[in-house]
Design a protein around this nucleic acid. Structure first.
Lengths: 228, 228
DNA sequence: ATTACTAAATGGCGAGTAG
DNA sequence: TCTACTCGCCATTTAGTAA
């Protein structure tokens, strides 16, 4: 790495000038201006980058044409990936809302063996037969709920059909509820609730465990796993 | 730029170690190994980064705890955005919404010379004194609005203070409104609107130009910035 | 264990300039 | 014009070592 550090910004400048897509005409003076350095230094940088195989130069009587090679692109890409991981990956999305009593839809779903099996396998806990319904009141939480759904779910629960009717799929996101770490938001595909409602599953009855009653505020921290 | 080039990789290494999320225990020797350099150099880098305000160090008898500051994060973010622009094709983000009549906040802001001047300089047109207010109704647009804000604005309008009160900053994104190409979304930092509202500026009165009245649907196409 | 100072060695920078 | 060489200068590095 060491050796390339100092040429890295030169490569970035060339990329910005379009040298990834094709040959670009750039004088050493122009590059020097872009890097805020001298013409001589820019010239040296280009020589080194060429020697490293990161760029290809086509010299001309008056001017040169530069293009970044595959190797150079990979060098840039490597850092880009690092940064993307740093900035896009580890996000904790916070949602707060009020507990309310639902219509037993969650309870019904969580009594179907097909769902229980998949949830147990994919989330690592056997869900208590019932969901904790939370209604989002503030806008920030609503945004975060939408943002959450742009991330890849921790588990994807497949729907099925038994001939009589079809059962929808669902997405699960691991989350912490008021400090209880073993829980998940479950987004049932064809729920009759709006986007302002989230349903929580856990191996225990959260209402009892957290001593919750209707109208109580809960704080949900969703752990996203992958870039949107 | 010049001075910071060489600390950039050190900052990246610290970010990789998790120093963006919280304090991380890293010895100068460990950092030296990560950067493939000497312990002394790593030590110096940390001192410089600290002096630049990019990291905060908590020294201990045996060991130190390092965390990247907001300024450091921004330094990394800037390069990340550069790379994202280079590697991700410029996207057109679509937002649709309904026109509504605001409270004259936009009109007020666009009568302040300080703002007019900056907008004219940075966007290339003198804004009509008034904004077109659009309320987002659908979820897809709401998400796109959030996505938009992860991109670098076309222009950043700085806030100011005149002693009496402070005027917030704003971010502008060039956009096309119902086919009108010379327009921009302006995100005022301390607006009283929620994230479901966007305000549009243009050199002309868009309401007249497009024959809009309250409740009419408009289609906004935001151009995410491209490498210059 | 650590971090960081000092001083000597290394090597990058850029003015001048040739091709 | 352009690129890139030489060479004096000085910035960066690192071994040794103190705290």
């Amino acid at each position: 790495m060491k050796v390339y550090d100092r040429y890295w910004f030169a490569l970035l400048a060339l990329a910005r000038a379009g040298a990834l897509e094709g040959e670009v005409r750039i004088s050493t003076i122009t590059l020097a201006e872009m890097l805020n350095t001298s013409q001589q230094t820019a010239s040296r940088y280009l020589m080194q980058l060429s020697r490293l195989g990161y760029i290809r130069r086509r010299m001309h009587k008056r001017g040169q044409y530069i293009r970044i090679t595959k190797a150079g692109e990979n060098a840039l890409l490597e850092i880009y990936r690092d940064l993307r991981e740093i900035f896009e990956k580890p996000k904790v999305i916070e949602i707060t809302g009020e507990v309310f009593t639902g219509l037993g839809e969650g309870k019904y779903y969580l009594s179907i063996p097909h769902y229980i099996k998949q949830i147990t396998e994919k989330l690592g806990f056997k869900p208590y037969p019932g969901t904790l319904n939370v209604r989002i009141k503030d806008e920030k939480s609503l945004m975060n709920r939408l943002l959450m759904e742009t991330f890849k779910p921790t588990a994807y629960i497949h729907g099925f059909s038994n001939g009589k009717r079809t059962y929808g799929s669902a997405k699960c996101y691991l989350a912490t509820i008021n400090g209880v770490k073993e829980a998940a938001i479950i987004c049932i595909e064809r729920t009759h609730y709006g986007k302002d409602v989230v349903e929580i599953i856990a191996p225990v009855c959260l209402r009892e465990r957290l001593g919750l009653k209707d109208g109580d505020l809960v704080k949900i921290q969703v752990k996203t796993s992958e870039a949107p």
